[in-house]
Each structure stands twice: as structure tokens, then as C-alpha cells.
Amino acid sequence: MPSKESNQPATTRAARLIFEYEGERVRLVSQQVVEMVVTGFDIARAHHAGVYVDARDAEDRTLSRVPARDAFATSTEVFPERAGEAIVRVDTARPKGAFTVVIPVPQETNKVAVVRVVPAQLDAKLPAGGTTSRVAGAAEATDLATFPLTLN
């Protein structure tokens, strides 16, 4: 589209965070500003069960939330050497490892939180004749840890 001026909106500021965990204990190992987009795929809008990282302001309001898909894994996969054999899972005695997320951090962000969300309680009954939606209860989120954001 020819335009008298080009005005691509600025990319929202994002931060890469690296966490280490052992059991339910988690610590923030590093935080850095990163110039990259975070697509809607990685910005949690629905409240599915799982572990998430929140960016929050001074009043503890959540500004953005992204999933931490590899956090606190209690099992790991073992792969077969020959095609056709089964992939199996083995329990991890004590979850230990690291994970990373890239999260939008608007200027008012002053902390990040690692959050565990348990599923919403759904009313599975659908009205006769169809519906556009089921009625959902509220998902429950519990903070596992919070850390100050000290990006420049």
C-alpha cells in the first residue's frame, strides 16, 4: 500500500528470563531485554492448567502472561533406537533443571512471577438446542515465586 508515511508500530519491549528449579524451588538466573516479537501463540489468553510467567506492575496487576512449558517436569522421555519401538517416559526423582521464557514487559513492569494455574471447573452441561459456550468457573492461580525486574 503506497503511503505518505510508514509507521510500523514499535515492537513491544520483551525480556528473556532464565530460571533454574529444583523441586518447587525456583530462582531467576538471568534477565535481559530482547528485541523480538512475542506472537499471540505464546501470550496466554485462556487459563489452561500449567505453569506460567507473569509480568506485573507495582500494584501486582498482571500485564502479560506466557506459558513456561518445560518448567518443573516430573518425567522425561526416552527414545527408542530402532524405528517402530516405543517412546517411553520415566519419572524424575526430583525435578531439577532450567527453563526460559520471552515475555512482553511494558514499561510499568516491575516484577515477574512464576505461577501455577489449576484448571477451571467447567459446567459440562450444554443447553438443549446447542449453545455458543459452556459456563466456566474461575481458574485458580498460585504464585510459586516473584522476582523484581531490573532491566535497564
Binding site: 506472537t39 499471540g40 501470550i43 502479560s64 511494558p106
Partner: peptide, 9 residues
């Protein structure tokens, strides 16, 4: 406002 445009899906 907090995260910008999400991208087409």
C-alpha cells in the same frame, strides 16, 4: 496495549 499485535493465526 500491553503486548502489541499478536500475529495472524
Amino acid at each position: 496495549q500491553s503486548s502489541g499485535w499478536a500475529g495472524w493465526f
